[in-house]
Nucleic acid binder design. Structure first.
Lengths: 209, 209
DNA sequence: ATATTGTTTTTTGTATACAAAATGCAATAT
DNA sequence: ATATTGCATTTTGTATACAAAAAACAATAT
């Protein structure tokens, strides 16, 4: 059990929530005293939380001017997908190379609730999707990769746009990735993982033209 | 001209320097009051700098225990090279795709002082190398990529490296990457960029066996 | 009306104060 | 000698205070 003897962690969580559901709107200035009071803390732990959010690019500090909620444009979202393509491709490659077949179950488990179902709940599937992609990274055991993937995916999470493509389409792709890893085929694993992200990205680009 | 009306920036720079040249040794606890006094500031801006360093993984905070200089093992350094391979490969691909030939000069310029030289100053070459790899990322205009590359390369910079391989060996590889970009060939650009990083990584792995 | 200047209010950046927790140390028991 | 306990010291986490900068506003000039 983890205990937090540090207020900045719950404050950080709360602020992130407020940014996600637009209680704090993009471009809005964060008036520290006001927010601190409304959260029942002083500016010190609030500042700590804000600095973490700044490092995650959710918030932007302009010295002597204030801290503002960042607004993310379409280009930035697409740029993130290029990063994800590179990183998830590498992750799939590493998993296929390490030939540790005990992980295959974990990856498959993400989607077992949905196989051969005619109706798929998109909210549950979106959660499963997130778990799958996160596992793909975590299971490599590459800590820096995990760290930087977090940075690239955080934006995406905040944008929050559930699913880019329907489950029927992506499920098959997920299993192609898993199978390539299970077969110990790094080339296929990487190229399927990249294709998967690339397709979503291309859709996003076309949607916005 | 950029003015800093914020002490935490110079403090951050100084702390990073202290970590790099081991004035602060790996594993060492940072006693805030002590360091703050020696730098002539209070704990407030010091804490801000330390939090940034924590987010960059140069320092590790254990709540209620203190903040410690992180020690980086060989595995972590190698793990970073996997990230760099993925990210720089993608950057080279993007540059080749965007077919903006005005950038070619900038990339070549990094190494013009060294072509056809019999004696290459390794310190200068290391600087040029860093500039080249940073430019490769920056020129894509992909801000999230730049951000996360910074996170992956920061470790590398702190380790202090010198060069993994001799200039004679890497110079040719650099020009292969540049030429593929100049030819607008994304496949080659990516694969040469990846090969370049992979070779250094493999050397590091073998050195440590 | 629009600029310009001066004044007040707000807000930031930093220092400092202080309680609670962790650490170090000495005295005692084993 | 090695543990164990209690006490003093150090150090952290948080709140608060305050100067300096920025923003908001009002009064005047153009």
């Amino acid at each position: 059990m983890i205990e937090y003897t540090d207020l900045s962690k719950p404050i950080y969580d709360r602020l992130k929530e407020m940014i996600i559901n637009e209680e704090l709107k993009p471009g809005e200035k964060i008036i520290q005293e006001k927010i601190a009071e409304s959260l029942g803390v002083s500016r010190t732990p609030l500042m700590k939380a804000l600095l973490t959010l700044e490092n995650e690019y959710l918030v932007e500090s302009i010295p002597r001017r204030g801290i503002f909620v960042r607004s993310r444009d379409q280009k930035e979202i697409i740029d993130v997908y290029f990063c994800r393509e590179a990183l998830e491709g590498m992750a799939a490659r590493l998993l296929a190379e390490q030939k540790d077949y005990s992980i295959i179950g974990q990856l498959k488990d993400c989607f077992t609730p949905f196989v051969n179902k005619k109706e798929i709940n998109p909210i549950n599937y979106a959660k499963a999707d997130e778990r799958f992609h996160k596992s793909l990274i975590k299971l490599t055991g590459n800590a820096p990769l995990d760290k930087i993937y977090f940075f690239s995916s955080i934006h995406d999470k905040v944008i929050g746009h559930g699913l880019v493509r329907p489950p029927e389409e992506t499920m098959e792709e997920h299993f192609k990735i898993i199978n390539a890893i299970a077969m110990g085929n790094p080339e296929d694993a990487e190229s399927y993982a990249r294709e998967h992200i690339r397709k979503s990205r291309e859709l996003l680009i076309n949607q916005h033209k």
